[in-house]
Write a protein that binds this DNA or RNA. Structure first.
Lengths: 251, 251
DNA sequence: TCAAAAGTGTTCTGTTTACACCCATGG
DNA sequence: CCATGGGTGTAAACAGAACACTTTTGA
């Protein structure tokens, strides 16, 4: 194959446009489009959900999809994921973690695209969405996600597995809950994430033994007649324990 | 900013060169260089090592580096990692796993480059290297790796953590050993990976309880006068157990 | 005969699991 | 006064950690 024309074009592009005036050492190499796709997990105090949108551009227009966007030259991937999340949903300051990079040659029929998947954790009730795409967005129960474009279903499976693993060893579950929550809600959350029933007494004993929650004098009266005490996660205490005693969060 | 010239160039490039004749839906987006870097772990029956090369091109020529290369349009990332590994070391059919994607804007002073890190596991003694770069390559004890270019030290730290986690739940340790190995060697390996001393009796009891090794009639006489029995990993048995009983490898 | 590594079980401790009844309240 | 979810402890099973002596054989 003769890439000589291609090489000249890339030279031109880099030299004329690179904003940092870096040297173009690697001018003979192929360039690709890098996308970011976000798996957005939410919890509504009962079920674990994911946020999907109906794609409003080709290819695959009208089909369900993760939210996504393309990496710009002026940002790194974490920033791109934050930007995509904020642009499409209005949310910022959200827990985001890089998951995996997908690169099958024909994964996107529109054009060769490599996609870096991220997952995000948000509290469904505590946020007011006002992103540009929000009218076409919908929360799906994690167990009832529709067929998605490209390899997005595969991404979700991997994100579920990662969330399961993380939730067992880091207190990221609290990202999905409102600031004040009941033990019952916390247990519901873990049952959804781990996809199995937990024993109420064992669960509460375990959580209390970690000693990272503060029990409030306040009760949530919305579910039972007796009411359930509200708790908050004490992040400072958790971080102090981690540093001082080498404490490891472990459900 | 006016990208109109840039856009035209990209249009031209995609339309003229794309080998699959895909449509160029995303022509307004930035393209980037995608590199692959490999953390190559090896075990020489005593210590865990990593393979590094002295970089023979700019930028950072002459400094120690992971082996790496650029993604081509005709391959996916797994294939790129395999190609890089084979080209530079002559090795193929190696355990490879994607680790993380690094994208800090100035991570490579030569040019904006995104790098997808992979890690590989090989048995140091069982392979004959004959790759193009092998004269500038050197095995470093994992605890004595030098300062590397870019963010490569960070990649190694992440790879070590991943290896530790994987080795506890999947039998990937055997990728680092010769086909026949002694219990002592297996224990050495795990001590290196986990970076802690293990109790000999507890370790052997644990391994034997997994019931996935075959003890041979043969002894390794090279270390002790008494000699140590050799074992082989029974991959078929392991996989049958995983499928049939839901067996989980767990050290 | 001795130095050096191989091989081998039991006890103890801490963690995980299983399990059932009373409490408080609003309707 | 009763239906509903909230709150609480103990015993058994299991898994992980600690621990020391005998065997083999080449030099």
């Amino acid at each position: 194959m003769d890439f000589s024309i291609h090489k000249k074009i890339i030279d031109l592009e880099v030299v004329e446009e690179d904003p940092n005036m870096q040297l173009n050492y690697y001018q003979k190499e192929d360039q690709v489009l890098l996308a970011v796709d976000c798996i957005i997990f939410g919890f509504d105090k009962e079920k674990l959900k994911i946020l999907l949108i109906k794609r409003n551009f080709d290819p695959e227009k009208g089909k369900w999809s993760l939210i996504g966007g393309f990496l710009k030259k002026t940002e790194d991937l974490d920033q791109a994921a934050e930007r995509v999340l904020e642009t499409l949903t209005g949310l910022n300051d959200i827990y985001l973690e890089q998951l995996h990079t997908y690169s099958k040659i024909d994964r996107d029929p529109g054009q060769r695209t490599i996609s870096v998947a991220y997952y995000a954790l948000i509290d469904v009730d505590n946020y007011r969405f006002d992103g540009i795409q929000i009218d076409s967005a919908h929360w799906f129960d994690i167990k009832e996600a529709p067929h998605l474009i490209f390899d997005h279903n595969e991404m979700i499976e991997k994100a579920k597995a990662r969330l399961k693993r993380r939730a067992l060893t880091k207190p990221i579950g609290f990202e999905l809950l409102p600031e004040k929550f009941t033990m019952r809600q916390l247990q519901n959350l873990y049952e959804c994430i781990l996809d199995k029933k937990l024993d109420k007494r064992n669960f509460i004993n375990k959580i209390n033994s970690l000693d990272i929650l503060v029990k409030l004098d306040e009760k949530d009266m919305s579910v039972s007649r007796k009411g359930a005490y509200l708790y908050v996660f004490d992040k400072d205490k958790y971080e102090k324990k981690v540093q001082e005693d080498g404490f490891i969060f472990k459900i």
